[in-house]
Design a binder for these strands. Structure first.
Lengths: 350, 350
DNA sequence: GTGAAAGCGCTAACAA
DNA sequence: TTGTTAGCGCTTTCAC
C-alpha cells in the first residue's frame, strides 16, 4: 500500500473503478453516492463512503467537467491585483464561491487589452461557467468574444447587449456628493479632483459625478484643478505636484481612489505642508490601509463584500438557471462617506 | 453560422472534429498541428490553422488534461492575500507561469489549517502539477497529503523529507543584521522587536535572527521588548501600545513585517510622538506602500520577484523532469536593508 | 506523413 | 435500487 523505502514503487492514484471494486458495487453507484443521488440504498452508500475514505479517493474534476459539461469554475478578472482594493474583492468573491461549491480563476489585466485577451482565452479553455470582469475599463471587443462563446458575464459599470451578461452599477454619486458637501460645510470652495485614467469607465464616471456634485453645491470648477492620474501611489504624487505648480491652488482634493490619495498624502508631506491643516484630502474605495495612513484618510467607501456578492450572484443565476430563459440583470452597489482625519476647514477658516 | 435574432439557435462550440472536417484531415492531424508536432506536412499545417482560425477554435483543456495526464496547472497558496506582499508575489508568479505556458490556481489559507486542507484538496482535484506553499506556517500534516499524492511542492522555509519537495530558504539574517547595525551606528541600544505570530515559521526565524544580530552587536535583549504580534496593521498598533505601557521603553523598533511597522507608525502618531525623531522604526518585506508611508519606511527588502522565480523554477524542474530521478533542491532568497526616513539617532543623541 | 482507434475518469441514459 | 454502457474532447499508439 504505502511507498517502498526506495520510493520507487508508488501507489497509483485511486479512480472510481478502484473504489467500486473495493466497495463491491458498480462505478455508477459510486458516482451516484458521491453526487448525493437519493437513489442509493443506505447500505451501499455506507460501503462506498468507507471505500472512498480508505483509499483517500476524490474525483478527477477534469473528467467530471468533460462529461457533465459543468466546470463549477468562475473567472474573475481584476484591473490590477497590486491595488489592495482588488485582493480584498477577490478574497470576498472566493469565499462566497467556495461556499457554494465553485472555484475561481483569478487574472489581473493591468488595463492591457492584450493581457485581457489572453486571460479570457485561457478562461475559455478552462471552460469557466462565468466571468466577473472587474476591470472597470473599456474592452468591449474582448468581452464580445466571451459573449459569443456563450459565457455568462457580469461587468462593472458597463452594459453589454447580451442576455447572459449582467451589469453591476456603482453608485458613486451618493458618496461623492457627500464628500463634496462635507468639504463645503467645512468651508472649502476651492476643490480639486485627481481623476483616474480616462481609459477606465469608472474613472470617467467618478469624475462626472464629481462635476455634478460641484455644480449642485453651486461651486465652479477650475479646469486645471481636474487632473488625470493613474490610480497609483506614484500617480497621486505626480498629480499633487501638478496642482502645486499652479498659480491658484485648491484647499481640498478629492481623489478618484485611495491609492491616489495616499500618494497625495506623501507628496504633501514632502512639500512641507500638513494634512488636514493646510489641505484636505479625500480618497475613494476605503481600502484597509485608509485607516492607517497619517492622518487617517477620510474616504468614500465602496463595499467590496457587496460588490463581490453581487458579482457572484449574477454569475450563479446564469449558471444555474437550468433551462429557464436567460435575462440580463442589474445590480447596484452603493458608496458612502467615511469621515476620518484628512479633512478640516481650509487654512484661515479654522 | 451566426446566432439567430431570437438568440435561440446558437452555434455549438467547435471541437477538434469540426476543425478536422473543415480542413479535410483526421483529428489526429489537427491534434498534431496544434501541439507543434514536426510530423505534419506544411500543406496540411496550413489548412488546419486556417480552419482553426475560421472557427475560432481552441482546445478543451479538460479533455487534454484527462488524456495527457498533464494539467499545466500550478497552485500557489499564500498566507493572506490581503497583505500586499502576497499579491505582489502572486503577480510575479503568474507572469512567469503564463510565460511558460502554465496557469495558476490561487488560494489564501489565512493561516487556518482547515482552510489550507480544503485548498489542497481542491488543487488535487484539479490535478495541479505542483504547489507553491507560501504560507510560512507549520502545516506538515496537510503537506504530507500533497506529498503522498505525488504532487511536487516548494515550501518557504520548511523542509519536507520528500524527493519531490523543494525548499526556499529566506536569508533574513543578512537584512536583519544590517538593520540592527544601522540602528547601532545611529546610536541606538534599546531596540525592540515586534514579532509575527509564533505559529509561522518565518516569524520564529525572523525573531531568532534578530536575537542573533543583537548578540553580535553586543546588545542585550530586554524580554519585554520582544512582543508577539500578528503581522497585521492592527497588530502593529497593539504591539506598540504594549511597548508604551512599559516603564522602560525602547528607542527603536524592528518589525517582523511592513504591515506591523505601518501599524506602529500610526500608533506612534496617535500617541503624539514622532518618527524618527522620538522613535525609529524598521519594517520587513518592502511592500510598495513602504515608500509611501509617513515618513517613508526604512525596511528590510525581501525580493518578491526572486522568490516567485525560485518557486516557479523549483516546480517546473519537477514537473518537466521527464523520467529523470527527482531530487530535492534548495533555493536561497536574500534580503537587504533599504534606507528611508523612519530611522534616525535616538532622542538626545541627534 | 497521415489516419483509425483505443481510452483518459467520469456522468447519465437506459436496462434490468 | 443497481448495473451496463455510451460517450465527453482530446492525445497517442499503431498501422499504413
Amino acid at each position: 500500500m504505502a511507498r517502498k523505502v526506495n520510493s520507487k514503487t508508488v501507489v497509483k492514484t485511486p479512480d472510481i473503478r478502484t473504489v467500486a471494486a473495493l466497495a463491491k458495487v458498480s462505478i455508477a453507484t459510486v458516482s451516484r453516492t458521491i453526487n448525493g443521488s437519493p437513489a442509493v440504498s443506505e447500505r451501499l452508500t455506507k460501503r462506498v463512503w468507507q471505500a472512498i475514505e480508505q483509499l483517500n479517493y476524490f474525483p478527477n474534476s477534469h473528467a467530471r467537467t468533460l462529461v457533465s459539461g459543468r466546470s463549477r469554475l468562475f473567472g474573475i478578472i481584476v484591473e490590477n491585483i497590486t491595488n489592495p482594493f482588488f485582493p480584498e474583492l477577490i478574497q470576498s468573491f472566493e469565499e462566497i464561491a467556495v461556499a457554494h461549491g465553485y472555484e475561481i480563476l483569478v487574472s489581473s489585466s493591468n488595463s492591457d487589452p492584450a493581457v485581457l485577451t489572453s486571460c479570457v482565452r485561457r478562461m475559455l479553455e478552462r471552460k469557466v461557467e462565468g466571468v466577473a470582469v472587474m476591470t472597470f475599463g473599456e474592452e468591449e471587443p474582448v468581452l464580445d468574444q466571451l459573449a459569443h462563446r456563450n459565457v455568462p458575464m457580469v461587468l462593472a459599470e458597463f452594459r453589454l447587449d447580451d442576455p447572459k451578461t449582467s451589469t453591476i452599477l456603482l453608485d458613486y454619486s451618493t458618496g461623492i456628493r457627500a464628500a463634496v458637501n462635507h468639504l463645503v460645510v467645512l468651508g472649502h470652495s476651492k476643490i480639486a479632483f485627481l481623476a483616474g485614467p480616462h481609459k477606465l469607465h469608472s474613472a470617467i464616471t467618478r469624475e462626472n459625478d464629481f462635476r455634478t456634485a460641484m455644480h449642485e453645491a453651486g461651486l465652479g470648477i477650475e479646469k486645471t484643478w481636474i487632473v488625470e492620474c493613474d490610480h497609483t501611489l506614484k500617480g497621486g504624487v505626480a498629480g499633487f505636484k501638478q496642482l502645486q505648480a499652479l498659480p491658484e491652488r485648491p484647499t481640498a482634493i478629492v481623489c478618484s481612489n485611495d491609492m491616489t490619495a495616499i500618494g497625495v498624502l506623501r507628496a504633501v508631506y514632502n512639500g512641507g505642508l500638513r494634512v488636514p491643516q493646510d489641505l484636505s484630502v479625500i480618497g475613494l474605495d476605503d481600502i484597509d490601509f485608509a485607516e492607517f495612513t497619517l492622518p487617517p484618510l477620510t474616504t468614500i467607501r465602496l463595499d467590496r463584500t457587496e460588490l463581490a456578492r453581487a458579482a457572484f450572484e449574477a454569475l450563479r443565476l446564469q449558471a444555474e438557471k437550468d433551462g429557464k430563459p436567460t435575462i440580463q440583470r442589474e445590480f447596484l452597489v452603493s458608496t458612502s462617506l467615511v469621515l476620518r482625519g484628512s479633512t478640516a476647514p481650509p487654512p484661515g477658516k479654522g
